[in-house]
Write a protein that binds this DNA or RNA. Structure first.
Lengths: 234, 234
DNA sequence: AAGTGGTCTAGACCACAAC
DNA sequence: TTGTGGTCTAGACCACTTT
């Protein structure tokens, strides 16, 4: 494991374990160097990582402080489908409708940059959090990259499978979203009525090699699903 | 200006000016060192910055490549209220209803961590993009930090004023959002009907010193407003 | 084997905040 | 003035990809 990742994880764990309140000052950089026995640059890299993830904030000339904990019940929008571990995770489950191999539609082909005769896995499932309907998801995985999928995998975490079993490294993602009016087709899945609001998110995930492998459209329940994003100017 | 920022800006400009298409390979790090006459670490820092902002992606052992341009008509969700410059910006305007000094409600006090008798500026305005109603915004600024505001400033960019005139350094932000059903009070502002969908965003902005200075609630038009977020595992 | 990005180090110096 | 975080450098070495 990389040193700066290790240090970042340890500092974060220390904050959670001791339940340090917002604005608590951490040891200065010199102190952290002594504590973790790594170079200054490594400490700084770890701290910047934590800062970007909303765990701490740093003030030049002053110190390093614990950042506000997130509100409960909100999901991290950026990490809701992969990437770093979220310690405050809520219990989730999936109800899978189908796992099929299909020819992609024009829209899917465009988003995944498919070859002409390429096939994709098409998965339709309902996402549940704490027993409530959270969202209705339709996802497409390029068979060329994710060579095998089944219902059991889709009932658990496809992304864990893709990362750990397929050894695919997830690099980056684009997410597009807006509020929409539910139509007759999708509303029943969420237990809502046509015309009711929803949050529509379209995501494209890329491997570290820059190849798109997953395109998903998720329609989130307007009352059950809420998100947060933390951002930093640095 | 910082070197790594300068290098990042120049590389980004080079990409836009030459209109380099997605997946174009850039010069390798050694080449960039020669071109910009800075150290390896500075180049790497600049590249990582660009990578996080979705401008490029890097593949270990292979090279540095141009990332997909964003879809037109979508607003960068993270930069929609400050932070780094977005070159693809659309023309925007504001219709201001009021700029008042008030006693904050309990909710506002809590989000801004106000003292007991503290006052805040309360601004109510309509955000327009390309002539269309984009969102209805109610924002609160701590008078203690942003000491003066008026209608003219609110008609333009409050954030530019806060940064450039007040010399307040914006550090980080929290955003919470979900889809909602419009009520009778707000729907008319957006030219919509009660019960129609909307995207409700609550944002808190902090100074680099970690003090919250702005709490805003923005209700976005479900058809006119759409956003994107780019994310990176690094 | 050669080329490319990524990590890590030690240390100089700068910028800002608090005393 | 002192303490603190931030930038920048030069260079060694590692990890991955391509040839």
């Amino acid at each position: 494991m990389l040193k700066y990742q290790e240090v970042a994880t340890k500092i974060q764990q220390a904050i959670y374990e001791h339940n340090l309140p917002k604005d608590t000052q951490l040891p200065n950089i010199e102190g952290l160097i002594q504590q973790y026995q790594v170079s200054r640059s490594t400490i700084i890299k770890a701290l910047n990582r934590l800062e970007r993830h909303g765990v701490i904030y740093q003030i030049q000339g002053s110190g390093i402080f614990v950042r506000q904990p997130k509100k409960r019940g909100y999901l991290n929008f950026l990490e809701s489908h992969g990437f770093t571990v979220d310690l405050n995770d809520l219990p989730g489950a999936s109800q899978v409708f189908n796992v099929d191999v299909v020819q992609p539609s024009a829209k899917v082909r465009e988003n995944l940059h498919c070859e002409d005769d390429e096939q994709v896995y098409y998965i339709k499932r309902l996402r549940l959090v704490e027993g409530k309907v959270y969202g209705f998801e339709q996802s497409y995985y390029r068979k060329k990259i994710v060579t095998y999928l089944n219902r059991e995998i889709a009932e658990n975490s496809i992304f864990s499978y893709v990362k750990d079993i397929c050894k695919i490294n997830i690099g980056f993602s684009d997410k597009y979203f807006k509020a929409i009016k539910l139509d007759e087709e999708i509303a029943p899945y969420l237990g809502l009525n046509p015309g009711d609001p929803a949050l529509c998110v379209e995501e494209i995930f890329y491997t570290t090699a820059g190849e798109p492998f997953d395109f998903s459209q998720i329609i989130y329940h307007y009352d059950n699903a809420q998100f947060y994003v933390q951002s930093h100017s640095k």
